[in-house]
Every structure is written in structure tokens, then in C-alpha cells.
Amino acid sequence: MSVLVYTENWDGKFKKLSYELVSYASAVAGMIGGSVTALSIGNVQQDELSKLGAYGATSVLNVDGAPEGLDNQVYTSIIAAAMEKTGAKVLVMAQNNTGKAIAPRLSVRLKAGLAAGVTALPESANPLVVLKKVFSGKAFAKVKILSDSAVLTLAQNSFEIAETGGSASVESFDPGVDVAGAKTTIKDVQKQEGKLLLSDAEVVISGGRGMKSSDNWGPIEELAEVLEAATACSRPVSDEGWRPHEEHTGQTGKIIAPNLYFAFGISGAIQHLAGVSSSKCIVAVNTDKDAPIFEAADYGIVGDALKVLPELITEIKAARAQ
């Protein structure tokens, strides 16, 4: 029995998420027995590929050619071919856009039960039982896999990276898949270069309707700059067009789990909390002492966000200068 982990790359680079996945895969392999193979698709340099070894992968399969953009069918075929080659019984992927797009297809292709958004190591190896979030984080469920093989997508930031100090052999792998046969055609790509992604940020500064107007976002952006943080918002804020819709967190927006989440002028509606309640530490600033956000927060200030923000920036700068 072995584990295959699909490690996506971003312009040829891995990131924290990739190492979380390999660490998780190697812990799962420790439970069910066997080794971890990582699969990489697209152009990634040799030294970047071998980094995966430090987190427990013993080998890396490298598929050089990939279609431009994600074609769900082509990627499914490549990953299925790697599962066949390695004889792996468990496939680990990220619960991100890519994972959500192809893990269900792989579940059908491989006849492997899918548990999406897994948050911890399996409770048991045989049968495989894993914990995942349900009801947008209001509860957890133990999912039992009834099939021989399994596809697990790991919720971001839910597993600590563990360096094993090992090393991985890198092998180039030809999955025998017709990359040119991609059915989806990319017509146009718009990317915001150089901006820290909300899903990657350790610290997130978020504003709600209590910020009153889009003109008041200056201090939020300044605090984000000081803390190397990403900016976010509640849904009404993006609906009003005060902020771009990519920034909206919550049940219908992005689900994030940073180390630190600041909520300025956000009431803390259950649908908002669904996207942020997994943050390690939540700080809330709200004029209403009874706002539900204070039930979810770790630290709170009852006060005007527009006054607290500049003071906070000053105090953080002062503390940093020491």
C-alpha cells in the first residue's frame, strides 16, 4: 500500500500548501504502511522537485508536458495513470480550486471513495475513517471509506508541516495521455501580479459594512502592508462593489484559515464565520458589544474601527521598531 500526493505548482514553484500535503501524505503512509510518491505536472526544475523529499516523499514523478490551464479530463487521466503506475491506494490532494475540480472525477475513475476537506489524520487505517468539516464548520463528520482506495482532499492550513529530512528520487513520467486532446480552451487570462493571495496569507485584515464606505479602506490596506497581510471583506461589502469579489470570505466566498484574522466592522453572521472560523486567532473591532463576532473572536475591542485602525497601525509599528 502506498500513497500518491498530487503537488500542484504555481509558475514552477511549490508553496506551503504543497509541503502540508506531502507531510500529510507521509503521516497517512505511516498509518497504512507503504511509501509516498509525489506527482508533479508541468514545468518544474529538478531542485524544486527534490525539495518534496524533505517532507517525506521518497520519489517524485515528474510529468513535463501539461495543457495550458487546467483541463479536468486531461489532469484526471494523468493522475489516474500515476495511481496505476505506483499501485497507490490513497490519493491526497488539496481542497482548493484544482482539487475540487478533479478529485471527484478521480473518485469515479478510480472507484475510490472521496472525502473532501479532510482536517486531520485518519481515525483508523482499516477501514479508513477520516474527519471532515460539515455544515460549513459548524460540525465535523467521521467519513468511512467503503471502497478499497480513497481520495482525500486536505483542507488548507489544517495540518502542520513536518520535515523528515529525507530525500526523494526524481523520475520523469510519461502518463501516455494526449495533452493536445484538452476540450477546454483558454481564451484569456487575467492575473493580479504580485498580490499576496488570500488563501496563502498568514494574516488577513478584513472589513465589513461597519467600515461605512469604500473610501475608508486606506488604513486596512496600510495595516495589511505593515503585517504583510492580505485584505478581505464581508459579502455585503463586495456586493456593494466597495471591494473586489475575490476578497469576500464566508460560506459563499473564500474559506480561509490564517493564523490571525482581523474583523473590522463585521457583525459575525453565521455565513461569514463559516469562512473564517478556522483561523487560529480572531480579533474583532465592533461598536456593538453584543455583535455575534465577539462569540467567535479571541480578542475584542468595543469601539469605532475607523479610530482603532490608525492607533493599531501606530502601535504595531512601535512594537516592531523595538
Binding site: V134, V143, K144, L146, A296, V302, D304
Partner: peptide
């Protein structure tokens, strides 16, 4: 291919620490 075996409620969290404005 899967079945829900059991549900678990999250641990209740510690109360929010309030700081003067």
C-alpha cells in the same frame, strides 16, 4: 463509496478577551 459514521461538535471555544478601546 463512503458513509457518514458519526458526527462530532467542535470544542467550545474560550470566551473572547475584551480590551478597552
Amino acid at each position: 463509496l463512503t458513509t457518514y459514521q458519526e458526527y462530532v461538535m467542535p470544542e467550545p471555544k474560550a470566551p473572547c478577551k475584551m480590551i478597552e478601546a
